[in-house]
Nucleic acid binder design. Structure first.
Length: 261
DNA sequence: AACAAGTACAACCGCCACGTT
DNA sequence: TAACGTGGCGGTTGTACTTGT
């Protein structure tokens, strides 16, 4: 696959913040086209802009598009982002499809400037909070632990820092248990019994009504199987029909936890 | 009032995926 | 099948603004 040089490298193409005039020119041009942009590459010339096509596309999709919602993120949007990020990782564009009027760039910025800091303060590693980001078992398990913590974070009744989430009430120490399982896996001591782990994607108060939601007490044979099992277990968190229904807090309008950070 | 440090967010950059030739 | 052209994505940077000293 060859890679063509970006038009941004053309000498004389303007960079930096857009002026009102440029915005107006871009909007009016796209309006003239009936809202349809044929080729971003050729748009700047057609619109009389001394910008590269990429820059125009970015400006339009992230700022000028009429259906963009401006303003602060609501609590509900924030929780949704946390949940989606826990399930999808840094798939900002996919996450953005679940939030009306929000752009991937906006969500990414919001994550980096607000949510990530909150998670770090809570001792949750935002980098590992995504279970589907790769096939690394340790990261996957850490992801599960973080997903549990994330779950707790958005739960109106649970906190993480020094308290065990309610849905882990029958597990003495989730993180310790997780560490033990990591050690078991990394030590190639296949005779050691697997550590029982509950599905962190589902709070116990929901699980209690559905024992099938519990993770099997023994892992399937082999590491690949474990990864497969993880993927299977969380396959309901795929995008598009991504429903996060059994996570109790989204419906709640009260989340004192967030307010303490 | 002036400066430094921190924060928020728009914009850029490089890479990749995919359709077309 | 390979090369090309383009759009899109995610990471990162630059800068304006805010807050603290």
């Amino acid at each position: 696959m060859g890679r063509s040089p970006c038009c941004c490298h053309d000498a004389g193409v303007k960079k930096g913040p857009w002026t009102e005039e440029e915005d107006r020119a871009l909007v009016e041009h796209i309006k003239k086209q009936g809202g349809h942009v044929g080729s971003w590459r050729s748009l700047p010339r057609a619109a009389g802009l001394n910008r590269c096509g990429k820059s125009c596309r970015l400006r339009w999709t992230n700022y000028l598009r009429p259906d963009i919602k401006r303003g602060n993120f609501s609590d509900e949007e924030e929780r949704l982002i946390v949940r989606l990020h826990a399930a999808l990782g840094n798939k900002w564009s996919t996450i953005a499809t679940h939030l009306d009027g929000r752009t991937d760039n906006e969500i990414k910025n919001y994550w980096n400037t607000h949510i990530k800091k909150k998670l770090l303060r809570m001792g949750i590693d935002p980098l590992l909070s995504a279970i589907n980001s790769n096939n690394d078992v340790a990261a996957g398990l850490m992801g599960m632990a973080n997903l549990a913590a994330t779950n707790a974070m958005v739960s109106p009744t649970s906190t993480v820092a020094n308290h065990q989430p309610s849905y882990l009430c029958d597990v003495p120490s989730f993180s310790g248990q997780d560490m033990a399982e990591q050690q078991r896996l990394s030590s190639s001591d296949t005779t050691a019994p697997p550590v029982l782990i509950r599905s962190s994607a589902e709070p116990v108060d929901h699980q209690c009504c559905n024992d099938a939601a519990l993770v099997p007490e023994t892992y399937p044979q082999g590491v690949t199987a474990i990864v497969d099992w993880q993927m299977q277990e969380f396959s309901n968190l795929e995008p598009l029909d991504l429903e996060l229904p059994n996570l109790c807090s989204l419906e709640s309008d009260l989340d004192p936890f967030w307010r303490t950070y």
